[in-house]
Design a binder for these strands. Structure first.
Length: 881
DNA sequence: CGCTCCCGCCATGCC
DNA sequence: GGCATGGCGGGAGCG
């Protein structure tokens, strides 16, 4: 009763201050009153009588029904706020006073009730997820604001995020059109593609790297390739197209939202920590990031995250790292977007992404963009925005057909994707740069050959011939299971690349995939190794080739083939463990591991030291030492992969006991092994993998440097590898001591096993991706190390190595994960060093590749276009810090 | 005390 | 100048 009184009285006096215990109230009345206007809540002291107030009241009065509905819905909604439902204060309150319209505020509904997330839910509750195509729902910002009882500003926050996913589109001033989720998957797909381009490399390393990087200071640059490229972008302006000016700023929330989503889509683990996201999103970069800026970004991310959470696309989780627990969000939305064929389809140069794409916008977009500057992925991405901006200008016209707009958007996005593709293609073709990840689309089906044919072949062959891939490493990919060996050819489902038995090489288009199994033809198939799982999480499909026999088919699926004995998955464990939802996830593994000495065991190689280093990071899983390794190794990467798998299986639940699984895997002696060759300059885009299976001898290159000709190899876009942890192992046969990596590698952990053979043979491993990440850390950790360049695998390097060293020890590149280099680089060879050396190798080597032509062409550009890796290297080298 | 993130000031741009 | 948008960051709520 008291309450009532107050309320009544209240209207005139600002009572709000009074703290009333809502909880009490709640109890009182269930909802009786439908009518109460929700809002008004806090209206401040200002008199109730203000014009606005009246307006609001009127509005609310006008649509009580709606309100009710909304309320109810809210109540029912589970969401995180579920608790609130228990204590639905605000709502309840309203109800309570139904009698009093004024209701002034019920006292403040706790902060939670005013949260953007809840507000967004309310907002979403008003509109159907899948509206009939026929009906077009327009949203009036003012109306919604008043109904929901919030200021418009808040509505903008929601709408901007929704707009980034195309759930709504702006029709005119103050008006938005509700599209619902019909296009959501398409949008996500586009974002995913764009994300791969943009952040593909990152993915792999993801957490670790990022962490590391920033820990060390290098951070973003290294991480984000684009930034380097494009100078301008950032928010600043993309020059977009046609038009007009775009106000850059404006869309930042939208852009941020898209980028944020992209990060999830690209992330293997599907978990993105806020700080990492913030760092990545702060494009600018390099410099220090001012703390304030960072904070601001984080605030914005919370805003976005709240909306995405309401949409059911992400959920909050915590990641436990070395440093402690960090807030993070996990993607719980759709992961795969099957339908779009476009992507898959290839990228014919000309092809538009979508046939349907409406007009010109796209075309314009592309052209303009292209013309203006080289695209950077980033740029491209941004540029899209501008378009929107443009559109917006126009928007004021109510007339404009919504549909078109939407289409435009879509088309824009698509265009972006296409543009990116093109760009990539170009690069690829030219063999320039790099490592950039190729979008999946790039490699179409085998049939398409465009892709394969052009670029690949050339590049490939030469390489082989020229020298062997210098580095061949057998790599074991932790991932999935091991398969029994299989013939080379395999392909993936979608037409991903395939191996043709006859052919020596495989091309994998997408970054996603990866499993490779090299079948060695003659070489010694002898033991075919099982292939690895795919790395690419999502891509399970992608797969690999396996040694003859077994795997051929795995095509699409991950390799889950039977072969994998239970383990399915990736043995590797990442250190992280994901917990389902709530639980915190621990990314980190015990640090100790790093120290773990076990690894050292590798016998004889001169390089042992080097190995060790790596080992730390990597787990070696050798059959022999599975056990030891297992533990740690498991930790490593699994998360990612497992996560993926799990996702596939169960999105929500992480695979049951990642660790367990991983262990199992670990146990298994074999992991697929591949040899990885780093991309040479010319080839930069691709990575070559050779099957590890082969007998060491065979592979080892024994005699010639080129032993391999016969060996089949797979080319993988660097990006793809990025995802992998890396891998190498020479023979499975004798494992070196496995060394678990203490560090967690976020992404990729892999197990390596070095076999004795390895010892004899020199192996270099490194993933490009890996490298990158490392780099940053490295420097920090170690002072620059001039030495080591080798790892790179640059062909040249390799060659030399091979020639010289064949017998020698193995040098491994780091796996991505490695984060830390805790170890002092005891070994000279350590991967760390990789970077610096690279440069030279990179640049100089062209010849080595074998693909002279391409190479040359590119050369000029190359510098500019240096692959991301290169860039990184450069950067790092250049700026140590 | 730190994580969240609400709130609203104020800049930007268009009309 | 007014209005629509939305960047931004102070500082409060909450655990």
């Amino acid at each position: 009763e008291n309450i009532f009184d107050r309320s009544r009285m209240a209207p005139k006096t600002p009572i709000k201050n009074e703290p009333i215990d809502l909880s009490k109230q709640k109890g009182c009345t269930p909802e009786r009153n439908p009518i109460t206007p929700v809002k008004i809540i806090d209206r401040p002291q200002p008199d109730p009588w203000t014009p606005t107030a009246n307006l609001k009241i009127l509005v609310s009065a006008a649509s009580p029904d709606m309100r009710d509905r909304e309320k109810k819905k809210e109540l029912f909604r589970p969401i995180e706020n579920s608790e609130q439902s228990d204590t639905p204060d605000s709502l309840q309150y309203d109800i309570v006073d139904d009698s009093t319209v004024d209701e002034f505020e019920k006292q403040r509904p706790s902060r939670k009730q005013k949260s953007l997330g809840l507000l967004c839910q309310k907002f979403l509750a008003r509109y159907p997820n899948y509206p009939l195509s026929t009906e077009k729902t327009t949203i009036s910002l003012d109306e919604v604001a008043s109904i929901l009882g919030v200021e418009r500003r808040r509505i903008y926050d929601i709408v901007n995020v929704l707009e980034s996913l195309q759930l709504v589109s702006r029709v005119a001033k103050n008006q938005y059109c509700w599209h619902g989720r019909h296009n959501l998957s398409q949008t996500l797909k586009m974002l995913q593609d764009a994300g791969e381009l943009q952040y593909g490399e990152l993915m792999t390393s993801q957490h670790k790297e990022l962490d590391l990087e920033y820990k060390f200071g290098e951070r973003k640059k290294a991480i984000i390739p684009d930034s380097q490229d494009r100078p301008l972008l950032d928010f600043s302006e993309p020059d977009c197209i046609s038009a007009s000016a775009n106000s850059r700023k404006d869309k930042s929330l939208r852009i941020m939202s898209q980028k944020f989503v992209m990060l999830f889509l690209v992330s293997k683990t599907k978990i993105v920590t806020l700080d990492i996201a913030a760092k990545i999103l702060i494009e600018e970069t390099q410099d220090t990031v001012d703390h304030s800026k960072f904070k601001t970004k984080v605030r914005r991310l919370y805003d976005i995250a709240n909306v995405l959470t309401s949409l059911g696309l992400i959920k909050k989780v915590h990641v436990t790292e070395e440093r402690g627990r960090k807030p993070a969000f996990k993607w719980i939305g759709p992961v795969e977007f099957p339908e779009n064929t476009d992507e898959l389809r290839g990228h014919s140069p000309t092809s538009d992404p979508l046939p349907e794409t409406p007009k010109g916008a796209c075309a314009q977009y592309q052209t303009s963009a292209t013309g203006k500057q080289r695209f950077t992925r980033h740029a491209s991405f941004n540029s899209a925005q501008p378009c929107e901006a443009t559109r917006r200008k126009v928007s004021s016209e109510p007339n404009s057909p919504h549909q078109e707009r939407q289409d435009e958007n879509c088309s824009k996005m698509i265009n972006l994707a296409s543009v990116c593709r093109q760009k990539i293609e170009e690069d690829t073709g030219s063999a320039k740069k790099s490592n950039i990840t190729l979008p999946v689309s790039l490699l179409p089906v085998p049939g398409d050959s465009d892709f394969c044919i052009n670029p690949l072949p050339q590049a490939v062959f030469p390489v082989v011939q020229a020298d062997v891939p210098s580095v061949s490493l057998p790599i074991g990919i932790s991932s999935q299971a091991s398969h029994p060996s299989m013939p080379a050819a395999s392909k993936t489902e979608n037409g991903k690349p395939t191996l043709v038995p006859s052919q020596p090489f495989l091309c994998f288009p997408s970054s996603s995939l990866f499993m490779l199994c090299g079948g060695l033809q003659e070489n010694n198939l002898s033991e075919p190794l099982p292939t690895a799982g795919d790395l690419g999480s999502r891509s399970a499909e992608a797969q690999a080739a396996a040694p003859p026999t077994v795997c051929q088919k795995r095509s699409s699926q991950k390799c889950s083939s039977p072969s994998a004995p239970g383990d399915d998955e990736e043995p590797a464990a990442k250190k992280q463990t994901l917990e389902h939802s709530d639980l915190p996830i621990s990314l980190v593994v015990p640090k100790k591991c790093s120290e773990s000495p076990k690894a050292e065991s590798s016998p004889g190689s001169g390089c042992s030291a080097a190995v060790h280093l790596e080992t730390n990071n990597l787990d070696l899983a050798s059959p022999a030492a599975p056990e030891t390794e297992n533990k740690e190794s498991t930790k490593l990467l699994d998360c990612q992969e497992q996560g993926k798998q799990s996702q596939k299986k169960d999105p929500d639940d992480p695979p049951p006991g990642n660790e367990h699984i991983s262990k199992e895997n670990a146990n298994q002696p074999f992991q697929p092994q591949y040899l990885y060759v780093q991309p040479t300059a010319g080839l930069s885009s691709f990575n070559f993998l050779f099957s590890a299976n082969q007998a060491p001898g065979a592979i080892s290159l024994a005699a010639n440097q080129l032993p391999s000709l016969s060996v089949p190899c797979v080319m993988v876009p660097s990006a793809a590898l990025a995802s992998f942890p890396l891998v190498c192992s020479s023979s499975f046969t004798s494992p070196l001591s496995p060394v678990p990596d203490g560090s967690f590698s976020a992404a990729a952990s892999t197990n390596f096993s070095m076999s004795s053979l390895a010892s004899t043979t020199p192996v270099f491993l490194s993933t490009t991706a890996v490298v990158t990440p490392k780099v940053s850390p490295t420097p920090s950790a170690d002072p620059q190390q001039p030495p080591h360049p080798a790892l790179h695998l640059s062909p040249v390097f390799t060659r030399s190595c091979s020639a010289v060293k064949l017998d020698s020890p193995v040098c491994m590149g780091h796996p991505v994960t490695l984060v830390k280099l805790q170890q002092p680089s005891s070994a000279p060879l350590t991967p760390k060093s990789i970077r610096p050396a690279h440069h030279e190798a990179f640049f100089k080597t062209p010849g080595s590749l074998g693909d002279p032509v391409a190479w040359k062409k590119n050369e000029g550009n190359q510098t500019r276009n240096a692959s991301s890796v290169q860039r990184r290297l450069e950067i790092s080298s250049t700026s140590p810090d």
